[in-house]
Nucleic acid binder design. Structure first.
Length: 894
RNA sequence: GGGCACAUAGCUCAGCGGUAGAGCGCUGCUCUUACAAAGCAGAGGUCGGCGGUUCGAGACCGUCUGUGCCCACCA
């Protein structure tokens, strides 16, 4: 924390720099800047503007959650995209909001009231929903508040909630439309039932994992006629209404068409032949329970079998008999035991690994159950959704993930949308006293006395599927909808590709179809990122304790550091590993930028249009050339959502080129003063100004703080500041590459200089010389390097040769020869070893190149540029051998 | 049971037809007129195995092994 500037120098410091401490302290700038940005209205999009729109709707976080590292990644990327577009002059809208998250939130509140010894049924529907709203008010805004911390440039005036009034109207509208188009229907089917949540679940809300089951073989029938079936769910036999065998199975052919008695029930059921049965599996005979198994249900349909429900909503056996009242998992062993008693267990239980469905919310084993539910007929909608990607109206990025998308759109089964919950959009259907049914639109009065509304609510993904247009005011034809739909890009993790992205495609294309094919898509591009993992690439989990709290990192290292860490790891569609050390590294980077800018300010640099070429020295021309190249590179990467690449390019340019070389090279001219120093100040100011603007989308806070300081002192130049002047980097112009500044000549020149300096430094390091230890040397330069002796001497810490100068070592690069007097210092043995190594490397090089050039196939087919490169390499290596050999010979005896 | 990825430096990952890269970590040196959250220099990979295509292959093809993920109603 010590300020190393000497007292005399301090007086020369620019005012702005004097106020900057030697370390960047995020806590002191973040809140202040965010408030200023919001107050200035920079994040508010104007639907009336004539700028081209750029729209992102946030994947709405669940109200019941708090910011986790995955959110932080998602939001950082969206913010970076939005900030760049805003700087480019787009009318950039990033719309924030939350999801009511039906089942998840209901569970959370149920858990809370359970602490008071209450269930939702104790409260009753209305009071319970009231309670959830209350809870939402209390905890709901947490993530949104955390977004502010992160620096998210969202338009707070447009914040939405999937359960707010407007969105509820959108839900009702689309339900009605789909209903009228026969794309929503009510039917009795086998659904996934969670006996704990007591609701139906859609297929994607069920997680299958391998569970250890027990397969037991049971004999049905009596001595006269019997058949053996195998099952893992013995209790379901109480609901069996048939036994099925394969039609070609010779073992059972004679039994088909006969009847057999189901134990305990006294029920006689038919033996049917069905192709679904696999004769190879188990005994080749299957018990058929149409009400509790999806396959069996289909067999039942094919053979006109009755369906018997034998469990209630809680999974308790309701079938009359000895097992009534038992839980399904108590009933299973009880049934097996009773069967054994009767001598019906033919083969004892054997362990059997099979996939069992679990509720994705509470992990309870899902019970397939025949039930009357509401469905979306997805076929026609999915065909559209598939076509939109196939014909390029919607681009999935990275493309490698397209097959996963098609795997869904091309195989989607009808979607069960009704849930037996209380927290959600109520199904807008009313039932009349005589079994009539009417679907009520948003502006219609519900029917009167004697009619009751369907008690169920809609799947939470039903409302979030409308998000890209419901948030913009649909079903009304609003200015926002006209201006900002279709949205530009959807940024989300690949893990909700089918939960959410597919739903938005289905609904968007349907609801907006009157706009025509190109304009109805919910987004032009889907940019998918991966999951954040720990430093070893492992999934983060509570039980493993390897999770990361982004807030903790923000506290410790600043928001920018967290953002940069995440963005830098974000390769399209790929998971990223992260750890605290990386956040530290990013923090260090921010600090480095801080200090480089601080140096510039201390030397009076200010953003200005860089002087004409003739006024510039080689270093200036080099860095401006590189700046142009990097600007183009970063711009292209960002346009293609390649954040990791963009960040890497910026990191290396800023640190390795600007800070480590240009700033060092600038010190000479700045110290010498005069016009030369003015030029350097202008170039340095310009380079930093552009670099800060390029970095701003990823690290908004530190760049703003420094950019303001940089503009506080000097003249603002129109090009760098953009039309909004120097009020904020948020609205400064996004840099464009100035092709006229490309300068291969200067790049080659500085590369040669770097090579020479590095060679000397390496030599010094090998000899164990201290930085402060002066070494006399002659420096002989050729070609482009001719004018750079002063820089080389300064950067390599070489002094002029004095009397009695006696060189003991020679260093040579392509355009520089440095002879050093190291009498008394040099470690001859080490030097000899080093040279021997270099010599061996050069000889290997020659051998490789000669082999290639002697290869006729190579000469015949390789492009001329490649051949030329190898020739050059050969020539250089040959020269190296000569040089090194002579150096070896010149070394004194040890 | 299907499908899709991935196997490159100690760790996490880029590179995807022309002499192996980054960050972190590691080693050595250094308070050098912005920064020790720094500077300088360095060590460390026969790019999972085996075949093939090619003048040339981490890179393309085949195959094997290993790992991960997604989907799936086999009782």
């Amino acid at each position: 924390m010590t300020d190393t500037a000497s007292p005399q120098r301090k007086g020369d410091l620019a005012d702005a720099a004097a106020t900057l401490p030697t370390q960047y302290a995020p806590a002191q700038v973040e809140e202040k800047l965010y408030e200023r940005w919001v107050r200035a209205g920079y994040f508010e999009a104007d639907a009336k503007s004539d700028r081209p729109p750029h729209t992102i709707v946030i994947p709405p976080p669940n109200v019941n959650g708090s910011l986790h590292i995955g959110h932080a990644l998602d939001m950082t990327l969206q913010d970076a995209i939005t900030r760049r577009k805003r700087m480019q002059g787009f009318e950039a809208l990033w719309l924030p909001g939350m999801d009511h998250a039906g089942i998840a939130t209901q569970n959370a509140v149920e858990k809370e009231i359970a602490k008071e010894g209450l269930s939702r049924h104790d409260l009753g529907r209305e009071a319970f929903v009231e309670r959830v709203w209350q809870w939402k008010g209390e905890y709901g805004g947490r993530i949104l508040n955390q977004m502010r911390r992160l620096g998210a440039s969202v338009d707070w005036t447009r914040e939405r909630f999937t359960f707010d009034e407007g969105l509820s109207r959108a839900v009702q509208t689309i339900f009605k439309r789909l209903y009228d188009d026969d794309l929503i229907y009510r039917a009795e089917r086998i659904i996934n039932w969670c006996p704990r949540c007591m609701t139906a679940l859609s297929d994607i809300e069920v997680d299958h994992h391998e569970d250890e089951g027990e397969l037991v073989s049971i004999r049905y029938g009596d001595d006269a006629q019997s058949i053996v079936v195998a099952t893992t769910r013995a209790e379901t036999m109480l609901g069996d209404t048939a036994v099925a065998v394969h039609p070609d199975d010779e073992r059972y052919k004679h039994l088909v068409g006969t009847e057999i008695e189901i134990p305990f029930t006294g029920r006689r059921v038919p033996i049917v032949a069905d192709r679904h049965v696999d004769p190879e599996f188990g005994t080749g005979a299957v018990k058929v329970t149409p009400a509790h198994d999806p396959n069996d249900f289909e067999i039942g349909q094919r053979h006109g079998l009755p369906s018997l429900l034998i469990m209630d909503e809680r999974g308790t056996i309701t079938a009359h008999g000895p097992f009534q009242g038992l839980d399904r998992f108590e009933a299973r062993p009880a049934v097996v035991a009773a069967l054994r008693e009767e001598g019906r267990v033919v083969a004892e239980k054997r362990p059997y690994l099979h996939a069992v469905g679990h509720c994705s919310r509470c992990d309870t084993v899902v019970e397939p159950r025949l039930s009357l539910q509401w469905w979306v007929k997805v076929g026609p909608l999915a065909a559209e959704a598939s076509a939109a990607v196939r014909d390029g109206r919607v681009r999935i990025h990275p493309k490698e993930l397209e097959p996963r998308y098609f795997a869904w759109t091309d195989n989607l089964l009808d979607w069960c949308i009704s849930r037996q919950l209380w927290w959600g959009h109520r199904i807008p259907v009313w039932y009349g006293p005589n079994g009539e049914m009417v679907c009520v639109g948003p502006d219609e009065e519900p029917p009167g006395d004697g009619w009751i509304q369907d008690p169920d609510v809609l799947d939470t993904w039903f409302s979030s599927g409308l998000w890209p247009f419901s948030t913009l005011g649909w079903p009304d034809d609003t200015e926002d909808l006209r201006k900002f739909y279709p949205t530009s890009v959807l940024v989300t993790g690949y893990d909700i590709l089918f939960f959410w992205v597919v739903r938005m495609m289905l609904f968007g294309l349907y609801a907006m179809k009157d706009r025509g094919p190109a304009q109805s898509v919910p987004f032009r591009t889907v940019s998918l990122h991966g999951l954040v993992r720990d430093k070893f690439g492992r999934k983060m989990s509570k039980s493993r304790g390897n999770g990361v709290d982004p807030l903790e990192w923000m506290d410790a290292y600043g928001s920018d550091a967290v953002r940069f860490t995440l963005a830098r790891g974000a390769n399209p569609g790929a998971d990223l590993a992260t750890s605290e050390e990386w956040a530290q590294g990013s923090r260090n980077f921010c600090n480095k930028i801080w200090n480089a800018t601080r140096f510039a300010l201390m030397n009076g640099a200010a953003p200005a249009a860089p002087p004409a070429r003739e006024a510039l020295n080689a270093a200036d021309r080099w860095i401006l050339s590189r700046l142009t190249a990097v600007t183009a590179e970063v711009d292209a990467y960002m346009e293609d959502y390649q954040h990791a690449k963009a960040c890497e390019a910026l990191y290396h340019f800023a640190w390795d080129e600007v800070f480590d070389w240009y700033v060092e090279l600038a010190k000479g001219p700045l110290a010498r003063g005069g016009a030369e120093a003015d030029t350097t100040r202008a170039v340095l100011g310009h380079v930093l100004d552009v670099t800060l603007r390029l970095l701003h989308p990823y690290i908004p806070y530190v760049t703003e703080e420094l950019w303001l300081a940089l503009h506080a002192g000097g003249e603002s130049d129109g090009e760098s500041s953009g039309e909004s002047g120097s009020a904020s980097i948020v609205v400064a112009a996004w840099p464009t590459a100035d092709g006229s500044r490309r300068d291969p000549e200067a790049e080659a020149e500085i590369a040669a200089l770097q090579q020479a300096v590095t060679e000397v430094r390496r030599f010094r390091a090998d000899q164990g010389l201290k930085v402060g230890q002066k070494v006399a040397a002659t420096v002989t330069l050729a070609g482009r390097l001719a004018a750079h002796e002063a820089e080389i001497r300064s950067l390599a810490r070489l002094t002029e040769p004095a009397e009695g100068f006696a060189p003991t070592a020679t260093l040579q690069t392509a355009q520089a020869t440095v002879q050093l007097d190291l009498s008394g210092v040099i470690d001859v043995a080490a030097e000899r070893a080093r040279l021997a190594k270099d010599l061996a490397a050069a000889r290997k090089e020659i051998a490789g190149a000669e082999a290639k050039l002697g290869n006729e196939g190579f000469l015949g087919k390789a492009p001329e540029a490649v051949v030329e490169k190898i020739r050059t390499r050969l020539t250089e290596a040959q020269a190296d051998v000569v040089r090194i050999s002579s150096q070896l010979a010149a070394l004194p005896e040890s």
